[in-house]
Design a binder for these strands. Sequence first.
DNA 1: TTTTACGTACAGTTTATTCTGTACAAAGTT
DNA 2: AACTTTGTACAGAATAAACTGTACGTAAAA
Lengths: 167, 167
Amino acid sequence: MSENHLEEINNLIVTEFSKTAEMFGLSPSEARLFAILYLEGSAMTLDQMSEALGKSKTSISTGIRSLLELNLVERVWKKGVRKDLYMADENLYKKFMNSYIHKWLNATTRQEHSLLEIQDKLNKESKFFKDDAKIDEASELYDKLKVMIAFHQLIEKSFKEIHANYF
Amino acid sequence: MSENHLEEINNLIVTEFSKTAEMFGLSPSEARLFAILYLEGSAMTLDQMSEALGKSKTSISTGIRSLLELNLVERVWKKGVRKDLYMADENLYKKFMNSYIHKWLNATTRQEHSLLEIQDKLNKESKFFKDDAKIDEASELYDKLKVMIAFHQLIEKSFKEIHANYF
DNA sequence: TTTTACGTACAGTTTATTCTGTACAAAGTT
DNA sequence: AACTTTGTACAGAATAAACTGTACGTAAAA
């Protein structure tokens, strides 16, 4: 009886916490996998997670790989255990925020870089424009690019500040 | 010739900027729609966007609705124009960040609330537990819940700070 | 060495998302 | 009034994402 209650509450927590993980950019299935692992507290094998989620081992395997790449989960080793063991970091806030901020910083600097390249390209090409209409169009594009690049720089600044404040 | 070049550069910018918009949680199609609209600079009709993206008007219509809900786009009115006109806000940073932060704050407070309710439920139920194992399990769940709730509160704090710093 | 267990690549299937075309209501035009 | 035009609801089609089962390489166990 009370077994069921705990089971049910556990499920509620997993469901709710999955939503939070989704906010951090995890897909619904990655999120649920992480939630299960986090709530378990200790290391789990692929089979255990497969059992807990009712999904194939293959599916869990790819899911875990994503979480590893995001640095939200790590493989641990335990004496005498042959299967791979995986564990969610205890320090939720730190891990999630770190992973998230880095994802943003990576993406935004990369994108800023791309925009700078485009800007450069536009610069070179627009030298050959004679037609006034084209020159105007190019100049408008140029302005937009400037704004977008500045936008990226602001984002970078914000995320760097969060990072500096909390870690 | 140079027409093509501008065309191409425009397309590069749209593609690159879409990725940024995706970081803010837009789906790929929403992102591209926004990028088109933003880069255009002036108001566009559904038909124009449909043409520009090579998608059906129905598709644009639903896409625009999403962007409206996210408050990233607004409907504008122009004398003598019968069709609906939509425009992306010029102030990228402000709009995106605002939309983003509010999305986070909404979600995280809602989720925190849910967790508190679950905590309450667990509290009530665990009063009836006699079995030691169950009591331990309940207490572990309780601890996890506490951590998660604290996690949400930290997130809230972070996002409120960003909001305060920038607006 | 042979056997068994484990994890993942890959192909195919299932499920979810996105898109299209038709139909229709609301508003504009003649 | 009849006739256009415009936007969206809805159902079905196309596309993308998630999942499964089989197959196989690698490593531990017998």
